[in-house]
Write a protein that binds this DNA or RNA. Structure first.
Lengths: 253, 253
DNA sequence: TCAAAAGTGTTGCGTCTACACCCATGC
DNA sequence: GCATGGGTGTAGACGCAACACTTTTGA
């Protein structure tokens, strides 16, 4: 991905600016047309894919670092972001160590170090994101969860772990609020739940249950244009939502 | 806590052996006589208390580091250990930075660095633990959760965070299995749940519910010796327990 | 007019809650 | 024998799953 000169330049600035041994990787979830999506990067000159990531500035809180990284890749600020796990096997970054081993001696080579990575997952409103590659990537794109490409290093494991966390936190975090657009229909929300849980849900019971939580506001105007009966549009009542989440949305799915 | 010579020695070995910027802190929970307990350390020459912690060897997986640290403090190996959060504010270790600032120049002073800490919580069988202070502590003791002393740095926050995690994971992790002795009575187990949840539970419903999970084996002999009716002794059926946890123990508390 | 999508109602079963009741033991 | 701790039973409330039924719309 780097040629020699790029590597030298990067290592010099990295050593000055960033904490060694620590990186951040983000699993960015979006939801569009009934599909849960993940943001991935494709490296230059390689058929290899990664999760968006970066390093922590020497005097920067890690939450801010994650935010900065995500702002660079999505254009969005104030993203919903949750730390979920640290991946700390010393062997996890070995492929990178080897990739650059014969370009620079270890003392000058930033990637000769072991890196542990802090995994964050982010929830964003798909339509507001402008996927933006970084300097050593040739592409930054959404892909459907079902057909994500093979990811390098342990990024596949990190993605899987983020998904598991998402599932577990569905009743405790404002996941719907952050993934759905401002207004949405009940079937759309149901699709999101079905995708995350990987399970079909009963249309009618889902509706009654959701409404029962008292966290949705129905707007007067239904969605026009589609075939068939026009569905109502809903939006989250954020105050009620967050209040309900404190106790956890009752019951399982 | 360190005098100057100790500090110099420690810094020299630390720089050689450990990863910079990263530490591990452990919240060790035990349960004894109806009380949830936490293991804390008292520093030499100071009225200050800390959670047990340490650093990560340069080529050591972080789980192993946590295990090593806990073995040193408790004498136990193969402890149930869960990572729960990284505390990454650059200011969190400032007090330590300042404490040693005028003993050594920053370049030689290990503690001049910023440290982020990985929080682990551990569940142990109280009676098997031998609390053992480290070289710069004068005491390592259990204390009741209700009256933990004021903890230094952000260790109070870390403890609070561990407790919240414990509560959330009660239906998803073998918490009872790891905190209770091999055999225990139903009221004892109930006390544990009540302590973690900070809530009174109905004696009879608790019993039926617990038995309903099918994760307990009743031994033939009841506990003798106490006043009043002799309670049955139970132990966990580990296979069933772990199986039930996969789906999560149904229902809330 | 018909198929498909969406909204609303109803019924029955299972589960939990809040009790009442029974048993054992030491003072 | 009685207070206390512990084990078991049960009636009513509640919640949820599995349905049937109605409404709206475009083809």
């Amino acid at each position: 991905m780097f040629n020699k000169q790029e590597l030298i330049d990067f290592c010099n600035t990295a050593r000055e600016s960033y904490l060694a041994h620590i990186s951040i990787d983000c699993v960015v979830f979006g939801f569009h047309e009934g599909q849960l999506k993940v943001l991935v990067l494709k490296m230059k000159n390689e058929q290899s894919w990664y999760l968006p990531g970066g390093f922590v500035l020497k005097n920067e809180p890690i939450e801010e670092a994650a935010n900065r990284i995500l702002k660079d890749r999505t254009g969005l600020d104030e993203i919903f972001l949750q730390q979920f796990h640290v991946f700390g096997d010393p062997e996890r970054s070995r492929p990178h160590r080897e990739m650059y081993a014969n370009m620079l001696p270890p003392s000058e080579n930033w990637f000769a170090n072991r890196f542990m990575t802090i995994g964050y997952y982010a929830l964003v409103d798909f339509i507001h994101v402008t996927p933006t590659p970084d300097s050593h990537s040739e592409a930054c794109t959404w892909c459907d969860l079902a057909d994500t490409p093979q990811l390098e290093l342990d990024h596949g494991i990190i993605l899987k772990s983020a998904l598991d966390t998402l599932r577990l936190q569905l009743n405790y975090q404002p996941i719907g609020y952050n993934l759905m657009p401002k207004e949405f229909t009940m079937p759309e929300l149901q699709k999101l739940y079905e995708t995350i849980l990987d399970k079909k849900l009963d249309r009618r019971n889902f509706q009654r249950r959701m409404l029962g939580f008292g966290i949705l506001t129905r707007s007067e105007k239904p969605r026009k244009g589609g075939a068939h009966k026009a569905p109502y549009l809903y939006s989250f009542d954020l105050a009620n939502y967050q209040n309900a989440l404190k106790e956890g949305l009752k019951g399982g799915w």
